[in-house]
């Protein structure tokens, strides 16, 4: 029996390892004192400081613009590509091209795009980040939509074609509605990935228009302040809520269908 118990040691160690830093961050965000290490009583003052921090708010607005822009582009391009790959191509090379942005280290993509923007003499700004995030965003949307396409029944599309509908009509009236849940999931994934993306944004954003992760990076680098803890706690709360809601929604749609 003690032998069987032994395997629970790394299991629990994993969860302690994953959650201790998060708990400390959250607790310290309510610290009344100035030290990020020693707890001196409960207060919300760091949340107040954060609310008045224009740099953080500016970064947040930029991040939302970038995420929204790249999600729209990724969803359109990724969905078309997924349908094209599943229905109009047998190329293994194309499959590899579609996977490449997901397996390439972000740093390599980041410097590649920096070099490319310089070569075509494009000025950096939010648009350059949107274009950059679309590279991996469309790959993830395509991957998610494709898994749905592979399982999808093709006979409806064939029926539509046999009854004389044009490819465009078939796509809009049959394929798209069937794929809607996959497209939504892909778009959500692209949006979340863009919100949190740092390395590529760091290389392709203009210094005057940083995204929120870039703002966090400079905060973390130049001094430790409890304001970061407050920001971390808010971001944690948002991510956790989104994930739990998404989880509930998938379960709901599963039970409905």
């Amino acid at each position: 029996m003690p032998r069987r118990r032994l395997i629970y040691v790394p299991f629990w160690a994993t969860y302690v390892f994953l959650y201790t830093p998060i708990v400390v961050l959250v607790v310290m965000s309510f610290n009344a004192g100035k030290s990020p290490y020693v707890f001196e009583g409960v207060s919300l003052k760091w949340y107040g400081e954060l609310a008045g921090d224009d740099t953080v708010l500016h970064g947040l607005v930029n991040t939302l613009i970038v995420a929204a822009g790249s999600t729209v582009l990724s969803t359109v391009l990724g969905t078309l590509l997924a349908v094209g790959m599943a229905r109009h191509s047998r190329s293994r090379l194309l499959d590899a091209l579609g996977l490449l942005p997901a397996v390439l280290p972000d740093l390599v993509l980041a410097i590649g795009l920096l070099v490319f923007y310089a070569a075509v003499k494009m000025t950096l700004g939010l648009h350059s980040v949107i274009l950059a995030h679309t590279v991996f965003g469309l790959a993830f949307v395509a991957a998610v939509v494709r898994t749905r396409l592979v399982h999808a029944d093709t006979s409806l599309e064939e029926a539509s074609r046999d009854l004389g509908a044009s490819p465009l009509t078939t796509f809009v009236r049959i394929t798209l509605p069937t794929l809607a849940p996959g497209i939504a999931a892909g778009a959500l994934l692209a949006f979340t990935l863009s919100l949190d993306e740092f390395v590529i944004a760091f290389f392709t954003a203009a210094p005057t228009e940083p995204t929120l992760p870039i703002v966090i990076y400079s905060m973390v680098r130049f001094g430790v302040t409890p304001e970061i803890n407050a920001l971390a706690t808010i971001l944690l709360a948002v991510s956790f809520t989104v994930i739990i809601v998404a989880q509930r929604m998938t379960r709901l749609t599963e039970s409905l269908s």
Partner: peptide, 29 residues
């Protein structure tokens, strides 16, 4: 991989934008 739903035009319409995007912003860099 069922039969293609259209000819070369449909192929181009579906695959063109995504492939073009990845060539310009991934392969060229």
């Amino acid at each position: 991989r069922p039969r293609a739903l259209g000819g070369a035009a449909a192929r181009l319409a579906f695959l063109g934008p995504g492939i073009g995007y990845l060539i310009v912003l991934l392969i060229v860099p």
